[in-house]
């Protein structure tokens, strides 16, 4: 399960050529948020996953947060 979550994150993190300097610590901070949640057992953090998908709002439609919509489909 852990692996699937991490792979899902990976799939959505595309790489683009670095055009500007960004402190690599930024990546570490985001990573800790994800890994901390998983490592402490909280895999089903919807807002964490939604937040991650938000990083790519332009390319991927963020999943709806409302469970009702899913049931309707």
């Amino acid at each position: 399960m852990t692996r699937l979550v991490l792979i899902a994150c990976l799939v959505f993190v595309s790489t683009r050529p670095a055009q500007a300097y960004v402190d690599p610590g930024t990546a570490s901070i985001v990573l800790q948020g994800i890994v901390g949640a998983i490592a402490a057992g909280g895999i089903f953090f919807r807002h964490k996953i939604a937040q991650f998908l938000k990083l790519f709002g332009n390319r991927v439609k963020p999943q709806s947060k409302a469970p009702i919509e899913r049931n309707e489909r």
Partner: peptide, 9 residues
């Protein structure tokens, strides 16, 4: 994942 995130700018 750490490496991938580091490449995001």
């Amino acid at each position: 994942l750490h490496a991938r995130l580091q490449e995001k700018t």
